[in-house]
Amino acid sequence: MPRRIALAALALILPVAALAHDYALKDLHIDHPWSRSTAPGAPSGAAYLVLDNRGDSADTLVGASSPRAGRVEIHRHEHDGGVMRMRRVDGGVTVEPGKTVRFEPGGYHLMLMRLKAPLKAGERFPLTLRFARAGTVDVEVAVDDGKGQPAAPAHHGH
């Protein structure tokens, strides 16, 4: 009987563990890098994640790269005269000590430019994040449509 209970508990835990993925680089914690799928032929997509600085010094995400894209840029949506616009962020995104910065639809995101193939739900792809102080870390981005994430914004004009 205890073996059956242990197996049942394991069956409940494994699907949750497969969805959750996080990374650490020195004092930085990177939580659940994810993306939405893209239509065939779409030139760009976006990746999202959460950066948590658990240290005593600020650090800045200064860039990213992926073999799935010709270029990765840091972008942000902002209101400009009552219109929501997407702008490239020059100089990176600083995460102050003890603070969290969310890359999410409608805010900061990593723009995947010149996609080499469509992003498909259920797959994962590599992404390298580059920080000013901590260095680089390789993460895996889950393309996870339908996980309760808000609808991805349209990315026009890139």
Rank of each mutant, 00 (worst) to 15 (best):
R4D: 15
A6P: 00
L7S: 06
L7R: 14
A9S: 13
A9V: 10
L10Y: 07
I13A: 15
I13L: 15
L14F: 12
A17K: 02
A18S: 10
L19T: 08
L25I: 14
L25M: 08
K26M: 03
L28H: 05
P33K: 12
W34E: 13
R36L: 12
R36I: 03
P40A: 10
P40C: 01
P40K: 03
S44G: 02
S44C: 15
G45W: 07
A46D: 15
A47N: 09
Y48K: 00
V50K: 12
L51I: 11
L51E: 07
N53K: 01
R54T: 08
G55E: 03
G55P: 02
D56V: 08
S57K: 12
D59F: 04
T60Y: 05
L61K: 07
V62I: 10
A64E: 06
S65R: 13
R68I: 15
A69R: 04
G70M: 07
G70A: 14
R71S: 02
E73G: 00
H77T: 12
E78Y: 09
D80M: 06
G81S: 04
V83Y: 01
V83I: 05
R87W: 09
R88E: 12
T94E: 10
P97A: 14
K99C: 00
V101S: 04
R102G: 04
G106L: 02
Y108T: 06
H109N: 15
L110T: 14
R114T: 09
K116W: 01
L119Y: 04
L119R: 02
K120P: 01
A121C: 00
R124V: 13
R124Y: 10
F125K: 02
R130H: 09
R130E: 14
A132W: 04
A132F: 07
R133Q: 07
A134M: 04
G135A: 07
T136E: 14
D138L: 06
D145H: 07
D145N: 11
D145L: 09
Q149S: 12
Q149R: 11
P150E: 02
A152N: 06
A152Q: 06
P153Q: 02
H156K: 05
G157Y: 01
H158A: 05
